[in-house]
Design a protein around this nucleic acid. Structure first.
Lengths: 121, 121
DNA sequence: CATGGCGGTTCCCTTTGTGTAACCGAGGTT
DNA sequence: AACCTCGGTTACACAAAGGGAACCGCCATG
């Protein structure tokens, strides 16, 4: 499997989705876009994400070049995160998706109810 | 957990991502957008997706009202899938995301390489 | 007679995702 | 002295995602 002989675009889309397509990554980017700069525990409280997942997510986002990590060796330590230029540019696709969500979530719910009712007969 | 007291938008984004945010759903929508109407095995070959995942994905997309399923009781059976109006409207967010991917995948790769090299020292 | 295509469904198994809890070191607070 | 904060890391456990193979009925083809 995994030929990818067909649908060449799919390979690319698949790649990007497997990088930034998980929930936490998107939510972290949204938070940083909204607040500019946030510390580790601020993000944690804001998203009610577990410490472990936040750590993993931020590491990946930094590795991918979407998020900037600044370590202040004070006591207690202070670590700030903000979006890179590429991270900022990711806001547009996220916003478009968010708006679509806003417009269509209700319709999806209706469709689901209708489908489930049909299926129960 | 899962308070969602903070970041009210996150709840909505999270909802839509958990519906149509998985890889296969996106790829199926892209394929249908590109070719108009496809049969089950055409999609399967096109995406090199397993039969099981394609079946599950299509069922969910139909339930959500993004995809239309037309069953022709011929022999052999013929089942055609195409996008609904809502499915069509989903192309825009997907395209924006796809374009972002196209523009930034290379940069992400570069960033990853640099990060990994730094980390190995 | 055996095989293959169509459109699935079902079972099993492995991989991945995600949460919980404990721990870290240095210093501040009670 | 005991505990809390910050920013993590690590070990463990469980749930969900997803692939592979077998099976289904029905008919056409070899």
């Amino acid at each position: 499997m995994l030929d990818d002989k067909q649908c060449p675009d799919c390979k690319r889309i698949n790649e990007v989705l497997s990088r930034v397509g998980d929930r936490w990554s998107v939510l972290v980017v949204i938070s940083l876009a909204q607040y500019g700069t946030l510390r580790f525990n601020e993000l944690k409280r804001n998203l009610s994400i577990s410490q472990r997942m936040l750590s993993l997510t931020l590491k990946e986002l930094e590795r991918d070049g979407l998020v900037n990590r600044t370590y202040h060796p004070t006591i207690p330590p202070k670590v700030e995160y903000n979006l890179t230029k590429m991270g900022e540019s990711f806001r547009e696709p996220v916003n478009v998706l968010g708006n679509w969500a806003l417009d269509n979530l209700a319709k999806i719910d209706v469709s689901r109810e209708a489908y489930d009712e049909r299926a129960s007969n």
